[in-house]
Design a protein around this nucleic acid. Sequence first.
DNA 1: AACAGCTTGTGAAAACATTCACAAAATAAA
DNA 2: TTTATTTTGTGAATGTTTTCACAAGCTGTT
Lengths: 206, 206
Amino acid sequence: MKKISESTVRRLSLYLRFLQEASDGGLDTISSDELAQRGGTTSAQVRKDLSFFGSFGKRGLGYSVPELLRQIQEILGLSRSWKVALVGAGKIGSALFSYRDFQLRGFHIRAVFDTDPTKVGAAWGDLTVRDDGEMDAALREQGIDMVIVAVPAEAAQGVVDRVVKAGVRAILNFAPIRLRVPSSVALRNVDMTVELEGLSFALINR
Amino acid sequence: MKKISESTVRRLSLYLRFLQEASDGGLDTISSDELAQRGGTTSAQVRKDLSFFGSFGKRGLGYSVPELLRQIQEILGLSRSWKVALVGAGKIGSALFSYRDFQLRGFHIRAVFDTDPTKVGAAWGDLTVRDDGEMDAALREQGIDMVIVAVPAEAAQGVVDRVVKAGVRAILNFAPIRLRVPSSVALRNVDMTVELEGLSFALINR
DNA sequence: AACAGCTTGTGAAAACATTCACAAAATAAA
DNA sequence: TTTATTTTGTGAATGTTTTCACAAGCTGTT
């Protein structure tokens, strides 16, 4: 398969969101142009993005909302549910844990770990925060697909090394640090400081 | 000035981080290659990024850590402090509020707003959560530079319209929705669902 | 002073991503 | 059935970003 760029994948995610809104609104057909307007891009971009995966539209008509919805879910691997573990039961971890959108889209948090003895044992929903020492074995046993890292920067690389060794191949990192992972592991960073600094740059340059 | 790409700005942010680490480690000189290794990029990329803003290095030697640190801070507008308001006092808002890195880098949260009467009036550090109705006036009065949006998706566009009308020109959005803002306003999105979906895609495509 | 060893700064080349532009396919109306 | 209208899918053109490659400049050594 041809190499798909990260920006294409990001946009697919957005298209999916608009399709869900359109679907909720009872719309059953949508054009590349409508999709584009909502995502701040162009209709050509939408069509090009989709064209990497097939021809989903009807000329003269546009796309069937439910069908395109299903197709993009398939493309992104969202027709199945993923087992997620959360490492770090601090403020950010806790906010992520109760973030409804995750569950809604098939990302199920199945385990939470922390090193802090005052946190271990706490009940989070129907889970119990477990000791960090149990993590490595638990990741394998539970067949965890993805790990969300929400620990302090100093601890993050150590956690990730263990997570990778335990066979996990996708990591979402919230710690403000650039992690090293083998190229076989997918890594995304949510780096709030970088975003704020980008805004700062934008403010002084116009 | 020539147009600087968003990726360049992002990388400058990362370089800044490494320089701070290097500085803490007592290093006083660093090469583009060392900077590159840590950021997962190439030395040519580092030099090109910096070259948009000037010549900060010494051939044969590299860059002076404290000087490059200062220069990048200047470029990113971090030598001053920014006044930030937080809209949304839920889980995510609360996690962001106590995120030490922000204050550390000159982003000072000066006001918190929410619509929920059970939250309004609560003491957060030395601030009090204020009613959403006070926001528009307060943003102007306090001379807020940036707003962090941490409200539910349904409420986000409404908040942003008011924030823009109040003269704020930089917005960091955590709501899972594509916001519309005038082109004069800088907007960054932190979209955790998009990131997770990107990981999902990566998992099923290798 | 000349040389060896590094590392920067930068045009030019290559790779990658977006936009253009239009033939092809679908529908609806006459 | 023909025509008008719409919108897709896609090569080709354009624009942007990254990488290459090397002269120029700095330091330390002989």
